[in-house]
Design a binder for these strands. Structure first.
Lengths: 328, 328
DNA sequence: AACATTAACGCAAACGTTTGCGAAAGCTTC
DNA sequence: GAAGCTTTCGCAAACGTTTGCGTTAATGTT
């Protein structure tokens, strides 16, 4: 159906090996026939078959990107970062949503290996990923650092971020601070909670387990969790949310309850998603360089692909506290 | 390196054709050897090579998704829709951002064809796409309807949406209504503007070209455009923004200018992105069923892939006006 | 008992490239 | 003008599957 290398070889009465080489500007081919071949290729609207090429070269110029949920506003920017830098080098990227499910994550890894991607960028759910880190395929982890110690990763220091957020609230006079987080098993959630606990501890504040609640990394969860807490008449003057989506839900609950932010309750989030900076929201949060993380992860993956033996260093980015109006 | 079908055959002392058939549960193979083969495959950690398979079957179980910008909060949900329904059928999806550039769009289409995707879902920029609609590859257009009349599409009625939005403002007593849109060449922008004009016309309101401004489908553009308009001392009591991102920028400009929404200026957007429904924002807008659009487009594409001759009907979804607090 | 049928499997081609190696020219050099 | 070198190209194998067809042995039919 589609025109192949053989078709243009036949037309030009040369071997298809020559066509192949001419199209890729091999030095073995004379300028003369190169031009002839390229001209014919254009005329016949030849499109190289990457599948056939991949079979022999064992390179597909393709990478896989596994995210929990592209719908979480944190991820589109990192996805954009990886897609753009991958594309610059001629790579395509498979988008996979693990939906915060370990089984789906594993299924996607297997699928990507079957599809012979050259590498994988993975934002893992939990420690489960440890089990398949022995793969022969280059991989870089994004957003977690303890999961696969032997693999490369690019992360922000979640614990420090949690610490910064909580410390900020404490310095503003709060001592009854809630932590509203996502799935308990998720590494980043744990780390942020650790940071929270550390800040309380360092400031001599007693840990109150009733102030710590977890559900999902979604706005609805923040809404429900906070609503429930308010109805319980919880004694808190501030809340540190595990991510900005949760914070938005928290804000909504407080709003609906008729309380004022930050006067009655202060709130700080995590991620610095685009809506956090809207003047109407103005959410104090911990910023992650999302796009940059995507770029860095991809660059790192590409060097690993091109040079499998090369031992590159992982990257830990430092989180930044961005103070806006929900906390002060 | 990786274990192949031949390795299994060698170990079991049978032909690799038999292994291939056994693994795919061909009826020609006895239950006995099927089990033996599958057992060996599992033991040897065999992973089928989708590249090799694709070369002979001419099916890659892969589709391409070309979006203008995954960073626009409208798209992650449609992306999720296509990814999920594609995955259910065993398909993977390539994510491509055209960045609202025709050249990138074209380059991606060529790339996807080279990679032998089984089909493409395209959210096109402009009419340029007309040029490559003769491809031999199944394609469904998302978000535009006039671009490739002979291709299948799933869209909402942009013109009607623009009409609904403008009419809503008019019914609330506004007659000086700005239109702040995205790229002028983009079909959906045009259509929405047409709807705007139609509503004005039907209500006997004179069209004022000075009230119509276009830039990009980004918040910054809305911000800049509105800021400029306010500084010019524009006489408008309402604005219809081409999408919600623009509307957010408009809101910001009004906010910074010290005016009140909707008392001083009413605004309505388009898309109903997640942040539009936040209580602090509460943006009146035209809703599109984003996730559903992704699902429908993918389903349509899959039937075209499985049955190329099948002539399926395109889908035009009706937009819905969602009245919130920025307009009333 | 002879033949036809069926079940189960092997052979080998094919998919569209890339690539190591060999071969045929053309060109130098003495 | 023979030897050697370069340039330019063709041959054929290889990548890991799928699949049409042929083959064998077992079973069924008369």
């Amino acid at each position: 159906m589609a025109v192949t290398i053989k078709d243009i070889a036949k037309k030009l009465n040369i071997s298809y090996a020559t066509v192949s080489r001419a199209l890729r500007d091999s030095p073995e081919i004379s300028q003369d026939t190169k031009e002839k071949v390229k001209k014919a290729a254009k005329e016949m609207n030849y499109q190289p078959n990457a599948i056939a090429r991949g079979l022999v070269t064992k390179k597909t110029k393709t990478i896989g990107l596994i995210l929990p949920d592209i719908t979480n506003p944190f991820y589109p920017q990192v996805a954009r970062g990886v897609e753009e830098t991958a594309n610059q080098e001629g790579y395509s990227v498979f988008l996979c949503n693990s939906n915060y499910e370990n089984e789906k994550e594993k299924a996607y890894i297997d699928l990507l290996i079957s599809k012979k991607v050259d590498g994988i960028i993975l934002a893992p759910i939990g420690e489960e990923s440890l089990k398949w880190n022995h793969r022969e395929i280059p991989i870089v982890i994004i957003g977690r650092k303890n999961v696969c110690p032997q693999e490369n990763f690019v992360v922000i220091d979640d614990k420090k971020g949690g610490y910064l957020a909580t410390e900020h609230l404490i310095k503003n006079g709060h001592s009854k601070i809630m932590f509203i987080g996502g799935k308990e098993k998720v590494e980043s959630n744990k780390e942020r909670l650790e940071g929270y606990k550390l800040a309380l501890n360092k400031n001599g504040i007693q840990l109150d387990a009733n102030l710590i609640r977890n559900d999902h990394f979604k706005r609805e969860s923040g809404h429900i969790l906070m609503k429930k807490a308010l109805q319980e008449g919880i004694a808190a003057t501030a809340v540190f949310a595990g991510n900005d989506l949760l914070a938005l839900g928290v804000l909504q609950a407080i709003y609906e309850y008729g309380l004022k932010v930050p006067q009655d309750i202060a709130v700080v989030g995590f991620d610095n998603i685009p809506t956090a900076e809207l003047p109407e929201i103005s959410l104090t949060t911990i910023a992650q360089p999302k796009y940059k993380m995507g770029v860095l992860a991809t660059q790192m993956l590409l060097v690993k692909i091109k040079n499998p033996t090369h031992r590159c260093e992982s990257i830990i980015l430092t989180p930044e506290l961005i103070v806006r109006k929900t906390s002060i």
